[in-house]
Amino acid sequence: MEKFAPVKRSEDGQPVRYLIVDDSVFARKNLARMVETFGGQVVGEAGDGVSAISEYERLTPDIVLMDITMPQMEGIEAAEKIVRDHPSARIVMVSSVGYQENIVAALQRGARHFVQKPVKPEVLYEVIKYVMRDDGTTRGAGAGAGA
C-alpha cells in the first residue's frame, strides 16, 4: 500500500474520523485499510442507509464514505437525511455505479464528492484532502500521494 501524508483535522490536529457505509463487508474493510494509510481513524461502519443515519447521530464522524446501492435505504437517500439534520456533514459517495444522474442526484442532496469503484487510493486521498480543505490539513513531510 502506498504511503500518504496523514490528513489531520486542522482545529486540533487529531486524525480524521470516518464512518464507512457499504453493504459489502469486504468493501468496508478495503476502504478502512485505505483511510488508515491516510492517517485516519475508522470510528464506525454500517451496512445500509438506515444504520448509517443512526451511526452518524451516535458518532458524528468527520467524513462519511457512503455506498449508493444498498438494501433497506440507498445511500443517496441516507445522505440527504443526514445533511438535512447536519448541514455541515461531509459525505463522499463511493459507488461502482457512477453515471451522471446518480452523481448529480447525490451532489444535489448534499454529498460533497463522488468516487467510483474500484477505488484508487490516490484518488480517494485527493478527495479527502479536498473535502477537508476548510478545516483539515496534511502533516508529515516527504510522504505525499504516490510516494
Binding site: 469486504f26 459507488s95 461502482s96 455505479v97 453515471y99 451522471q100 474500484p118
Partner: peptide, 21 residues
C-alpha cells in the same frame, strides 16, 4: 463470497455506468 460479490458489483456497476451514459 464477499470478495466475489464485491468484484461483481464493481464489474457490473462500471458496465452499467457506460450503458447509462
Amino acid at each position: 463470497r464477499e470478495a466475489v460479490l464485491e468484484l461483481a458489483n464493481q464489474v457490473i456497476g462500471n458496465a452499467i455506468t457506460t450503458l447509462n451514459d
